[in-house]
Write a protein that binds this DNA or RNA. Structure first.
Lengths: 257, 257
DNA sequence: AAGTGGTCTAGACCACTAT
DNA sequence: TAGTGGTCTAGACCACTTT
């Protein structure tokens, strides 16, 4: 079942002729071809590494190198110990539209799901306190959620809410309702300003576990601070997205004008 | 010169005792320690891979795995075939402040430099035409620049300007002057709206070459469309940043309010 | 129980950089 | 010219998932 690749000379390293194309990029081409042809198979799962390595007559390490390149490009992704998959189209995430996750995903004809991993009250750590403009150790609600699109876990979020602003909020349904909707309907608080910090990093172990991903996998961090009509910081979100899952968007008038 | 690591049991694979800490994370710890102690050495250059691999008694492949993890975290970076370096602090890039590169970098006590790689007129490719709202093949100016911070090349930009808006702009000094400044001073065009698209990808070969980086290295893409006071798209920028070089920032009123 | 991905070993050659 | 990073080979064991 060994498909012959262009320039597939198994012992070309010992060959006087120069390799026309380096194995990795041949491999990538071949893999892309494979994705184009076969991948639309329901699950989007790729063949096992050993199968691919045999099919393309290469080593596991070399094959993985090529796969990880495609992962970095956002074309494929892996689930820990489960294998490689074709990446679905990116979700468009308009930062200033401030749509709740559920609405944002649904409006793009995808299926949103949420799971609450933790919801407690605790004292504010220094970093959280600084961002919320409150004293270290002041009470905050700490909510951790994992969110899925079409069944695939793509987002790990930690929310920190000023406890004094939202008494009893943990009693509400945190799976179905959006937090900003609760702010408005139950606490009369509207969000009048948001500020974001975006940076590309990696998944820490807890996030990785929640996303069925490899710890250290590529991630896009989006942190967000919401301010109410009085300019007071009311909550702070720390989002970690699988980096291939989103495309961020901003549209506004520049401030210099 | 071999430093003993905690749990450094060279043949632990054949050992009945479980490894207390996996080699890669031991390695990462050790490397972080090394960075903390020695790295502030002027150039920020790390020892050669072979030296590190001997020092930490491991394999080159395993060592590189650990280094690439740190690269993904944005703590170190590499220059193609030149070695590994400690990452300088990220530049804060406020998308809506619309500060020219030079001012933005200087305001953060860093030293900006610019190099023009290409500046020509050419017909608009489909993608460019679509974003500028002009006909395919309509004339655009195509400018490619590489930009450095403190001597390190971090940004590869391609600009596409509507040629009908900016006659003769290629005659100007594109190294020293900001484009938006030229728009205002010579063409009476102000930017009244911007729209961004952000997404994490990899460096294509031209960008990699310009940034002395490995092709396929981690990158942050920032595309930007500028609109004038009549709501007409006047230029389109495609920026590729070394992913560890920036931290993006947005602050504004959400649009739902 | 079989197979998978995750990790690790122990080498090697080449093109390029630094000296 | 010596040494470097980039790439590749040919194996191996383990913990976990899947069947």
């Amino acid at each position: 079942m060994t498909t012959t690749l262009p320039h597939a000379t198994p012992f070309s390293a010992n060959n006087a002729l120069p390799r026309l194309t380096p194995p990795t990029s041949r491999l990538q081409q071949a893999l892309l071809g494979m994705l184009a042809e076969e991948a639309p198979s329901a699950t989007g799962r790729l063949p096992s590494e050993r199968q691919m390595m045999e099919r393309f007559s290469t080593t596991r390490i070399t094959l993985r190198e090529a796969l990880m390149q495609l992962e970095a490009e956002g074309r494929i992704y892996r689930e820990s110990r489960r294998g490689w998959f074709v990446s679905p189209p990116r979700l468009r995430y308009d930062l200033l539209a401030s749509l709740p996750f559920k609405e944002m995903v649904a409006s793009q004809q995808r299926c949103p799901e949420t799971e609450v991993l933790k919801a407690t009250q605790c004292p504010a750590q220094p970093k959280v306190a600084a961002r919320l403009g409150i004293l270290e150790g002041a009470p905050v609600f700490h909510i951790i959620r994992a969110r899925r699109i079409d069944g695939r876990p793509v987002l790990y979020v930690e929310h920190y809410l000023r406890a004094d602003c939202f008494p009893g909020i943990l009693e509400h349904d945190l799976v179905t309702c959006s937090l900003t909707e609760l702010y408005r309907s139950h606490y009369g608080i509207r969000i009048s300003r948001v500020s974001f910090e975006l940076c590309s990093t990696v998944l820490h172990s807890r996030a990785a576990e929640a996303l069925r991903a490899a710890s250290g996998g590529p991630a896009q961090r989006v942190t967000r601070i919401n301010y109410d009509q009085n300019g007071r910081a009311i909550d702070y979100d720390d989002e970690l997205w699988r980096h291939d899952a989103i495309e961020l968007t901003v549209s506004a008038a520049p401030q210099g004008t």
